[in-house]
């Protein structure tokens, strides 16, 4: 109670990091290919989709493969982090039942190891970007890209804050989310550019926050451009209240949560 805020923050950070490290170890240490799995998922899909669209359908979109790769890596992170975030309370029941920790710590720590896997993928992405595709975005655009990454992480956190306590109540949410993720995969401009979609449908796609993040992060990295500032303003205007709302949801839904686990 008398702990200073900084000391508390340190304590929280130590816990988050320790739990995330444990998750990482559990996930990759025992498996045969270990850390290779982290890369296999997005890059495997990348090879398949790239072959299908570039070679079979003879797609002529400029810089198609690198755009596809950026989209896939971001989507894989989103998919992973939301799933881990949603199931975090149930997965960490043993700890929650015995220690009084702020609930958000559990959620954040569960999404962190998806974040670490994502960072590994980013390294490969930049190697491809500079080495293979010979694209050199200006530093401020790289920074802009990371801003979108932070926003993407924010979206997964908002999602997890709302769904993690709900998942304790409804244990089939993860199956529903799996299906929805498929829908989102096809409903986001990952393997097609948003410009390929005719207008009435395109506005529907813009309701998907991923559309905004994917489109603009690709524009920043590949084209070194920053367009339509009204989009950004609108996004932030929705993002901030959603974040506050999700915190409220977490607090409200978490009441008596532990008894239900």
């Amino acid at each position: 109670m008398k702990r200073s805020f900084r000391k508390n923050l340190n304590y929280y950070w130590e816990i988050i990091w320790m739990l995330a490290k444990t998750d990482l170890k559990m996930r990759y240490e025992g498996s045969f290919l270990g850390i290779i799995w982290v890369f296999l998922k997005p890059f495997g899909i990348f090879l398949v989709i790239n072959y299908v669209f570039s070679t079979i359908f003879n797609n002529q979109t400029e810089n198609y493969s690198i755009k596809l790769l950026i989209g896939l890596i971001l989507f894989t992170f989103f998919q992973d982090a939301t799933t881990n975030g949603m199931t975090s309370f149930v997965n960490k029941t043993a700890i929650l039942k015995k220690v009084n920790l702020p609930k958000w710590i559990i959620i954040i720590s569960s999404t962190i190891h998806s974040g670490i896997a994502f960072l590994f993928n980013l390294v490969i992405l930049f190697i491809f970007l500079y080495g293979y595709y010979q694209i050199f975005p200006k530093p401020q655009y790289v920074l802009l890209f990371f801003y979108y990454v932070v926003l993407l992480y924010g979206v997964t956190v908002i999602f997890s804050f709302i769904t993690a306590p709900l998942y304790a109540k409804f244990r089939d949410l993860n199956q529903i989310w799996e299906v929805l993720l498929q829908v989102i995969f096809f409903g986001s401009p990952i393997f097609y550019p948003i410009t390929a979609i005719p207008y009435p449908v395109r506005s529907i796609l813009y309701a998907n926050p991923l559309t905004y993040i994917l489109e603009h992060s690709r524009l920043a990295l590949v084209n070194s451009s920053f367009t339509s500032p009204e989009h950004h303003l609108l996004f932030i205007c929705i993002f901030i209240p959603s974040f506050i709302g999700s915190l409220w949801c977490l607090k409200k839904f978490s009441r008596n949560l532990i008894e239900r686990l």
């Binding site: 739990l19 444990t22 043993a94 700890i95 015995k98 220690v99 009084n100 920790l101």
Partner: peptide, 8 residues
């Protein structure tokens, strides 16, 4: 914060 042994 700890209750029983072997929390985490």
């Amino acid at each position: 914060p700890f209750l029983e042994l072997g929390v985490g």
